[in-house]
């Protein structure tokens, strides 16, 4: 039973970054900009948040107010991701450059920048930033006594970080913003038919900036959430989760609730890949070596199969990837 609790709580902790980043991608694409740069945005967010966490650790404030320090780090991750995404927005919106090429540039830039910076700060070859251990939410955070290794303790407290409740809040906020506000309606209009949106007085450029910046904010927080989930420190990489989040977004058909579902589905495969030997009900496949590659490959293949069947009625924003030119109205 403990193993089941572990699997569930691990799945949640890995689903959090996938969901946040996929929601970010969704916002960007609904405004009409393809955001390939999610991977790079995650790296920048995680990098800045890790530096902040380490600064709090050194000053001693982290141990006194761990969750306040964590909240600040999460905000820093979001803001730095947002700042980095301005580069994409500027290229894609103001200069009408090719969005995928601009995004690729940011994806190459971010991890190299992170390596060069950590190398310069921590010294030669020290490319992993350690994360302090006080960030985890434990029973003591709530003034409770430390319980034993029971089902519920493992389920709730083994991998409980502030990123999880924040992700729940952001999910609800993202859904409300997209479907229940005037802003959301206008944003979606810019991704479907920017000319029509412009003709009724919506500033398409501003809306697209908003979409990309929101995706930067969510992507940055997703970066630190991923780093926490992995738990072995930040080594200038988010292991392709930015690209996996793109798959989650497509699998979720550009809608928040299906994105939540597919994030959990993709995270489950990730956890199975890591723990397949200790999960009793899985086929044993004893003859196959390196089974984790097999399980990690499956979500991508499933996404491609889903794309075959859904491409005809895809809910992808119609004007995504096309720079908006006022003159072509």
């Amino acid at each position: 039973m403990i193993i089941l609790a572990n699997i569930i709580s691990l799945t949640i902790v890995f689903a959090v970054p996938l969901m946040l980043v996929a929601l970010g991608g969704m916002y960007s694409e609904h405004s009409g900009v393809i955001n390939i740069a999610l991977e790079g945005i995650m790296v920048i967010g995680a990098l800045c948040a890790c530096f902040v966490l380490n600064a709090f650790d050194k000053s001693g404030m982290g141990k006194v107010h761990p969750q306040l320090a964590m909240l600040i780090a999460i905000l820093v991750a979001g803001v730095s991701g947002m700042a980095f995404s301005v580069l994409l927005a500027f290229a894609a919106i103001n200069l009408k450059a090719d969005q995928t090429i601009g995004g690729t540039a940011l994806n190459i830039f971010a991890p190299s920048f992170a390596v060069v910076l950590t190398w310069a700060i921590q010294g030669q070859g020290q490319t992993t930033i350690q994360i302090p251990s006080w960030i985890r939410i434990t029973q003591e955070t709530f003034g409770l006594e430390k319980g034993g290794n029971t089902f519920f303790n493992a389920l709730i407290f083994k991998y409980f970080y502030l990123t999880t409740p924040i992700a729940v809040i952001l999910f609800i906020a993202a859904w409300m913003l997209l479907y229940k506000t005037r802003f959301g309606l206008r944003l979606r209009a810019c991704g479907e038919h920017p000319q029509a949106a412009d003709s009724v007085g919506i500033n398409v450029y501003k809306m697209r900036y908003a979409g990309v910046l929101i995706s930067g904010f969510l992507g940055g927080i997703g970066g630190i959430a991923y780093t926490i989930a992995v738990g072995s420190g930040f080594a200038s990489s988010v292991g392709g989760y930015g690209f996996l989040a793109l798959a989650v977004m497509i699998f979720g058909n550009w809608k928040p609730v299906p994105i939540l579902g597919s994030a959990v589905f993709f995270a489950l495969f990730k956890v199975i890949a890591a723990y397949n030997s200790s999960i009793p009900f899985l086929p044993k496949l004893d003859n196959i070596k390196d089974k984790s590659s097999l399980y990690q490959m499956l979500p991508y293949i499933v996404t491609m199969i889903v794309l075959i069947f859904t491409s005809k009625k895809s809910k992808a924003p119609k004007a995504e990837g096309i720079p908006y030119d006022k003159g072509s109205r």
Partner: peptide, 14 residues
């Protein structure tokens, strides 16, 4: 770090 080269490459792509 040798990744410095990649920063220059990314600027070129951008």
């Amino acid at each position: 770090s040798s990744e410095s080269t990649n920063i220059i490459i990314s600027v070129i792509i951008y």
